[in-house]
Structure formats: C-alpha cells, structure tokens
Design a binder for these strands. Structure first.
Length: 338
DNA sequence: GTGATTTGACCTTT
DNA sequence: AAAGGTCAAATCAC
C-alpha cells in the first residue's frame, strides 16, 4: 500500500470492517430465522475474505513490519473445516522491560462455533488444571489461569491464561507461558480437560456443555512455539498430532502448503496449526499465516478460515530444524489463497 | 475417596 | 495503591 494515502487506507479499512460487521449481523440473523449450513458456508467465506483483506491491509500499513501469508494444508482427516470455526493463532513477543518468568510467551486467538453449543475454545492437547480466576479491569469476562496438570509430577511449568474477548464472545484469547517439559502432549488424543469444561461454570449456567461428543467433534489443537527471541534459546520442536497423517518420530515433519517464498519458508516453519475432530470433514485445510515481525514486536497470526474457494494446494513435507529468527529477515506476500 | 474447580486471601509487579 | 497473578482451603464431580 505504499501508494495509498493514509486517509484512503483508513477508509478502506473502515469499509471492510463495516462489511465484515454487516456480514456477521446477517449470519446472526439468518441463524435465528433460517439456520442453514449453506448460508453459513457462504457467509463464513465472506467473513473469511474480509478478515484476510483486513489482515493484509493492516499488515502492509504497519511500518517496520514484514508480512507473510501461507496456507497450511492438512490431510483430510486432520482438518475438517467447520464453517463457523475460524481459528486464529496470534503469536506475539513483546520486548517490554518486564521481568518474565517464562522463556516463551505467545497468544492464540481461538474462535469457537457457538452453534455447536460450545462454551469455550477447544482443547489444545495438553492437560491443564485451573488454579485461579480473576476479574480483569475493563474486561467483560474474567480471566482464567491454568497450569500444566503435571507441574509437580514432571516439573512442567507451562501455564496459560484464557480470556474471552469482549468484542466477540466466540473468541478466546489464550496466552501460553512457558513450554511443556512434560511428556503428556496429546498428539491427537482427546484430552479430558477442555476449556469448555473448565469454564462451563462461568459461562454456562443454564446447561452443561455436551462435553464428550461435542468436544470430540470440535477439537482444535494448536502448537506454536516461536521461542524467546530475546534469548539464544530456540525451539526446535513442532508438536503435531497423529491426525496430520505424517507424524514421524518426534514430530519433526508436517505437511504444509504455502505461498511463502522458499527463502522465507524456513524462517517461518516454526509455525503450524492443526485442527482435528471437527465436524464436516474436508480434504484440505486452508489458512493464512500473517507474520509481522520487528525487533520490538513479533506477532504471528495464523488463520485457519474456511474459504469459499479451494485453491490447489501442494502438500510438502519438510524437516523442522532449530532456527534463528533474524529480526530483519524478509518475508513478503507472494500470494494469498482465497 | 480422589482429583479438579472455585474463590477469597495473599503476593508480586508497576 | 491498584491491578494482575498465585496459593490453598473449601467445595464439587465422578
């Protein structure tokens, strides 16, 4: 958008935002009056396009950042694109001077499908134990605190915080702190602890969630590990569930189809997302990675939206190696699936 | 009975 | 001092 004036840029953002909002209202209205999967499918596609467009615009409009988009392809069994399920992973690293307890911190935005009766985002593959809840100033919903179930047994100090979005109650912001040192990652095995269950008492006073079946039908697992860019420590492992179909050994391989340039790909290969146990099995998984990265801030958005059209996706497999993220490494948009 | 959740109190950070 | 984060006893669910 280098030739676009600021006012035009803002107007464009505004128009797209309005369009997206109206599409949301339309979907809400249709769901009330005449629930229909076909309608939802189309509207989800529209919303997805709006989101992607906004993502691109906002990324391009931010100086000092680089962007990349890609789609992650998952074999049929591994992802089923529930059309109401947008899944974003927002990974960030801030160079605030705060002393940090954990070496890794990142945030995922998980959008749920409210029509499935879910009360919270899906399981992420680890076993968590809730240890606290706090009302946050200015937030409509309380923040929940979880630690790894195996903290004491295996000295695993991973924690996460779950905050329901004020603006979009179907979206949960999940902040992970620390990485798991336990050996209890689920790798596709349904886990007993889901946020749906964990937060049911807060968000579902009138009904108990259909935990078993619904959870199994709607489980979105994510593993994102960017590491702490301020330190030399670098993650080398991508944890992938067996449902990806190409799980090998220590999960060092996974399929990905991408529009990222080859040069960018390796630096980018840390990020993955996965979904499984979703209804409406599909043969492909489409998503966008939006990476914004500067010396002071790293943010990665992985969006696994259902799309209205399905671009041919070349699935490739590659080893994941420990990597050093150069704050200046170039990532450019070389394509965008729609 | 056992393990997970809740929630008020306490601690830490800014 | 205020807000966020954690602890731990009480309670709940299985």
């Amino acid at each position: 958008m280098e030739n676009t004036s600021t006012s035009e840029y803002m107007a464009l953002i505004n128009e797209l935002s309005q369009g997206m909002e109206q599409a949301k209202q339309l979907r809400f209205h249709l769901n009330l009056t005449s629930p229909c999967e076909a309608h939802d499918f189309l509207l989800q596609g529209i919303l997805s396009s709006y989101e992607k467009s906004l993502m691109i615009l906002k990324s391009n409009g931010t100086a000092g950042q680089v962007e990349a988009t890609s789609s992650v392809s998952v074999d049929g069994s591994s992802y089923s694109g529930d059309l109401n399920n947008n899944l974003k992973i927002h990974q960030e690293h801030k160079d605030t001077p705060k002393r940090r307890k954990h070496s890794h911190t990142w945030t995922e935005l998980v959008r749920i499908n409210s029509e499935n009766g879910l009360e919270g985002p899906t399981d992420d593959g680890y076993n968590w134990r809730k240890y606290g809840q706090k009302d946050i100033l200015g937030a409509k919903y309380p923040r929940s605190y979880y630690r790894c179930t195996y903290r004491h047994l295996q000295n695993c100090w991973a924690t996460k915080q779950v905050q329901r979005s004020d603006d979009d109650p179907t979206t949960f912001e999940i902040t992970y702190k620390g990485t798991h040192t336990c050996n209890h990652s689920a790798n596709g095995v349904p886990q007993p602890a889901s946020i749906e269950k964990q937060e049911s008492r807060h968000y579902s006073h009138n009904h108990r969630p259909q935990q078993n079946q619904t959870l199994l039908n709607f489980q979105a697992n994510h593993r994102v590990d960017i590491g702490d860019l301020e330190k030399t420590e670098k993650p080398s492992l991508l944890s992938l569930p067996s449902t990806f179909g190409c799980l090998e050994g220590e999960n060092h391989k996974f399929p990905i189809s991408t529009f990222i340039n080859d040069n960018n790909f390796e630096s980018y290969s840390q990020f993955m997302s996965e979904s499984n146990y979703l209804p409406y099995q599909r043969n492909s998984f489409e998503g966008a990675h939006n990476l914004q990265y500067s010396e002071s801030d790293v943010a990665v958005i992985i969006s696994a939206n259902a799309s209205t059209t399905y671009s041919p996706i070349a699935t490739m497999e590659f080893p994941v190696e420990p990597l050093d993220l150069d704050p200046n490494f170039p990532i450019s948009i070389s394509g965008f699936f729609t």
